[in-house]
Amino acid sequence: MSIDAEQVRRIAHLARIGLDADEADRYIGDLESILGMVERMRAVPTDGVAPLPHPIDLQQRLRPDVVTEADQRDLFQADAPAVAEGFYLVPRVVE
């Protein structure tokens, strides 16, 4: 499995993880060896086998449509990095 620097940059950007050049190089090697190990699994014959997203075959429980949550803004915002007037703040997003 070969991965190139461009792929790692693209994935890192999708995942919003900043990488410097050295790190990017290291992750190229890591991803190659991990995906190399994963190759073994790709060889398993699975024709006609349905994917299994959950190990237990159960169905979704439904919640009655009632309001159960009270306002806890102050508590939730106590450890927030930046808030003002109840809003969470981030650098201006240019539309």
Binding site: I11, L19, L31
Partner: peptide, 20 residues
């Protein structure tokens, strides 16, 4: 930067693998 600084290298490795 928040995510680069906040996560350690194994976590980043798995996030990158999973994203891939």
């Amino acid at each position: 930067r928040s995510r680069a600084e906040g996560f350690g290298s194994e976590v980043k490795r798995r996030i990158l693998t999973g994203t891939y």
